Simulated scan of single mutants.
Amino acid sequence: MVSTKRSLGLAVSIAALLIGATGASAETASLRIAQQFGIAYLPLIVASERGLIEQEAKALGITPPKIEWLKLSGATAMNDALISGGLDFATGGIAPMIVAWDKTRTNAKIIGVAALGSMANIITTNNPNVKTIADFTEKDRIAMPAVKVGFQPIVLQMAADKAFGKYDKLDELTVSMPHPDATAAILSGRSEITAHFTSPPFVQQQLATGKVHAVLNSYDVLGGPHTFNVVYSTAKFIAANPKTLQAFVAGLDAANAWIKTNPAEAATLYIKAENSKLEPGFVEAIIRAPDVNFSTTPEGAQKFADFQAKLGIIKQTATSWKEMFQAGLHSKPGN
């Protein structure tokens, strides 16, 4: 009888080990993350350089995935890679992510993983006659990364809707141009570009010259801080890798906490990783700015979704910001 009990106990132990091994192996062994350029992606840089995601994975009792950091640019290419299985986590503006979420509700089911942070985007101008967006004329041209598609065009339409009751009133003045090129154009004063809707560090670089002034702050348009960029994935990947997802978000939270307590070191890390020519003190000042907050908590997501639904950019708005983001964030004070 004792022998039988021992045999039974051994069998149960072996079964438990096998179940545990199966559960562990269910998590992905690799993690492909798209990382774009710019200070808005600082949390990812810190998480990568300091191995924070791997540390959190170990703490959760899983083998840390082999992380591949991919430099991709453009929502279309990124979404195609995500849906085809060539990418696990994509990154981009919150407004484009909401469009992807809406378009894939019945198939790939793209969903937000975490916010990367809240930071104000500013319209600058070298035209002394322009004090508000109401002062723009047909002679002005407003540069932004992509017209009608993306974060800046949506915010400009929100501002126009409030100011004129006509969301597309300023659309004809917009021009597609990368931030570095637009910065050079507006500072030269010899281009058709008289305004630029841009983000850190380009805002600070331009204002520091004294050649431009601010016209519009996106925080004013949204009525407070809002998420700028996010990380997103597919419902299938999230469901299959719950602990990897948990480790990733915890790694970002750890990165954000480290950035807040070590802004000078974070600036140095950013400059090295991006091979940037910016001065450390300049980058540190941006990190310390009161309108910059690196956080995984989504802010203003519902306002973006409501406006995009109003314009017909998405078929219907979300019932709550939580509908657009994975459940692990739902306990956070998002909006």
Rank of each mutant, 00 (worst) to 15 (best):
A57H: 10
P65H: 15
L31T: 13
K139V: 07
T183H: 04
L44R: 03
Q205S: 15
R141E: 09
T132N: 00
T261I: 14
A100M: 03
L207G: 12
S191Y: 01
V130I: 13
I67F: 06
L116F: 13
Q36P: 12
S176A: 14
T319Q: 07
T125F: 03
L87R: 00
A40R: 10
K315T: 09
G112M: 08
F164L: 05
I286M: 07
P180E: 04
M158D: 04
A195I: 03
K310W: 11
V283N: 01
A134M: 02
A163N: 00
L252M: 03
G61C: 03
V231I: 15
I313V: 06
D291K: 02
P280R: 01
P64L: 10
A108F: 11
L173G: 01
V215L: 02
T296E: 09
F197G: 00
P200G: 13
T296W: 08
H330C: 11
Y270W: 07
L60S: 02
P298F: 01
S30L: 12
A29K: 09
N275Q: 14
W258R: 13
T174E: 08
A247H: 14
I98A: 08
I313S: 09
G300V: 05
G150Y: 01
L10R: 12
K332M: 12
D135S: 11
K260Y: 05
M97G: 10
P333Y: 05
A95T: 11
L52G: 14
E54R: 14
G251L: 13
H196P: 14
A195V: 02
D88S: 06
D168I: 08
